[in-house]
């Protein structure tokens, strides 16, 4: 599909969460700028990035909220969970403590988002192989038990970063098509581009079952 660069049909809202220093901002930066920030300052409150991707033939604008991992900003960051269509939950494969905190992050996410929010677990810093502190199998099992999607990635090399963001979008899109995600609900985290007509266009524009994802 040859859509002009700044036209898109949907906006998906994502949040990125996880302990301080796991590389949330670096993942976002790698995804939006395709660059690694080696000297990344700590995030104040919340930052924000966007990128348009193509999923199943649709241009989708991702609106990504990058939150501060510090406990001090929890109250601020909690308000950003609502209305997120996707949540990327990040831990650091070289620091077990960040993995151990996942259940508390997951509880927060489940409590503060709606049931259709797609949660994706990312084990960051996979390039630091000799410092590994959390085994892939262990995290995979945790993800399966909790019904999360999972991948190990590296914001430094860019490995699997694109995949994590795009797979999440595909899953959300699939849920829209299945009807599991109600676009009219205010907190679905998905909106049509304002200029486009309402929900009906979805059925018009995207022929059923042609999606390859």
């Amino acid at each position: 599909m040859s859509a002009p660069p700044y036209s898109y049909s949907y906006i998906f809202k994502y949040i990125i969460i996880g302990d301080m220093g796991v590389g949330k901002s670096c993942l976002l930066h790698q995804f939006t700028e395709k660059k690694f920030m080696s000297d990344c300052p700590h995030t104040i409150g919340v930052e924000f990035g966007t990128r348009i991707i193509e999923v199943c033939g649709q241009q989708i604008k991702l609106q990504i909220w990058d939150t501060a991992g510090q406990e001090r900003f929890r109250a601020v960051t909690r308000s950003y969970y609502r209305g997120a269509a996707g949540a990327l939950m990040v831990y650091d494969t070289t620091r077990r403590s960040t993995y151990n905190h996942l259940s508390s992050w997951l509880t927060d996410t489940r409590n503060l988002t709606n049931s259709s929010t797609v949660i994706f677990l990312i084990g960051n810093k996979s390039d630091l192989k000799d410092q590994r502190d959390v085994a892939y199998e262990e995290a995979k099992q945790f993800a399966d038990e909790n019904g999360l999607m999972f991948v190990e990635a590296s914001a430094k090399t860019g490995d699997n970063v694109e995949e994590a963001f795009v797979e999440t979008a595909k899953k959300i899109f699939q849920r829209i098509q299945d009807g599991r995600l109600d676009l009219n609900a205010t907190e679905s985290g998905v909106q049509h581009k304002p200029s486009q007509p309402g929900r009906t266009t979805l059925t018009d524009q995207s022929p059923k079952n042609t999606c390859t994802c």
Binding site: P41, I44, G45, V46, E47, F48, V76, S79
Partner: peptide, 10 residues
Amino acid sequence: THMVVASFLQ
């Protein structure tokens, strides 16, 4: 509002 404040601080 919080995000705008954060952006000024950043």
